[in-house]
Design a protein around this nucleic acid. Structure first.
Length: 320
DNA sequence: AAGCCCACCAACCGCTTCCGA
DNA sequence: ATCGGAAGCGGTTGGTGGGCT
């Protein structure tokens, strides 16, 4: 039985069952809601028809009038959502994201962050909800891969990678950059000759949130960003990876560049950073740089699962 | 066959932004 | 300038179905 068939809503939402409260123990109510008038839960075909007819007549607007006119017992909000996500013409309902769509979402998420509505405008037939759900699923999948790899080995990669960028020109600029970064901690280190802005980024954050510190365009613009592992000697130039800021798309670019030109030069260096753990692992993505843009996510996606078992434990900075 | 896990997706909520009076 | 309603957006929840043990 589908709850929706009986108008059963999710969570603490109210319920309308043939206009009366049900005593069924499965049904939950929020008595703050006016349950006699507002229906929640799955939509029926009849309701869809009413909504479609309303849009045909008046266009996709005046959502709240649908209820005030007594056409449906739904809130305007609910009607709008139903139209936008399910009833609108030319939607790709039930069609999986193509590879191209996936790459587009990944690229745009890196550029815009979680601006799902904006990202959806680049994908015909996709809604913000589609994009959001796609991304959420993807994040969960990646998280599970990482979790599994950590559980399967006593060796972990819990220590952070360290991203280093030249000190920004002013402390205000520095603060602004950091305030825009998520899930990162930061500190200054006085490296005598040059002040470095040192940002500690857990590996998970680096690979899971491409719009986090490592890829924050505002922070990286006009700078080279050095990346090294906590395991390495800070002076070991061979272990330094460099993100060329010229390769980082900015918010101002408005996605003018073709996708294939927007790749991060961090990727080959990322292997250097991770070091010997990958020595015996075939890296599948290397030849794909030409045919497909590299992103933090596509980068991780192409790893064989057992590859994570080869990650060497990273020492804490105190062990240098 | 049953139970569990997970991916996918619909729909909700709260908050923000927009816009007209 | 301000206020209130409508619309838009992003985060979250929870149901369903398929695969696996």
């Amino acid at each position: 039985m589908k709850w929706g068939e009986y108008g059963v809503s999710r969570g603490v939402c109210g319920v309308v069952m043939q206009g009366r409260r049900s005593s069924c123990s499965y049904h939950r109510y929020d008595f703050d809601d006016d349950f006699d008038e507002i229906k929640k839960g799955s939509w029926k075909e009849e309701e869809d028809e009413v909504l479609i007819n309303h849009v045909k007549k008046y266009g996709p607007r005046d959502w709240s009038s649908i209820r005030s006119k007594g056409l449906l017992q739904r809130t305007g909000k609910s009607c709008r959502l139903r139209w936008v996500n399910k009833l609108r013409p030319n939607l790709k309902n039930g069609v999986k994201f193509s590879g191209e769509e996936e790459r587009t979402v990944i690229e745009l998420q890196g550029q815009f962050g979680n601006k799902w509505a904006r990202i959806a405008t680049y994908l015909s037939g996709r809604t913000d909800n589609d994009v959001k759900n796609f991304w959420s699923s993807r994040q969960k999948r990646l998280a599970r891969i990482l979790r599994t790899s950590q559980n399967n080995t006593t060796r972990t990669c819990a220590s952070p990678l360290i991203l280093e960028a030249p000190k920004l020109s002013s402390s205000k600029e520095h603060e602004e950059s950091l305030s825009k970064s998520q899930s990162c901690s930061s500190s200054y280190i006085d490296n005598s000759d040059h002040m470095m802005n040192q940002v500690h980024v857990p590996l998970e954050d680096l690979v899971m949130t491409p719009n986090s510190i490592a890829f924050e365009p505002n922070m990286l613009m006009h700078h080279q960003l050095h990346i090294r592992s906590a395991t390495t000697n800070p002076n070991d130039e061979k272990k330094l990876g460099i993100i060329e800021s010229s390769h980082i798309p900015t918010h101002d670019d408005d996605f003018a560049l073709p996708l294939e030109n927007q790749e991060f030069s961090i990727m080959p260096n990322f292997i250097d950073v991770l070091g010997h753990g990958f020595d015996n692992v075939e890296i599948p993505y290397v030849n794909r740089q030409i045919e497909k843009p590299l992103t933090p996510d596509s980068f991780i996606d192409d790893f064989p699962l057992d590859m994570f078992e080869h990650i060497e434990p990273l020492q804490s900075p105190s062990q240098w």
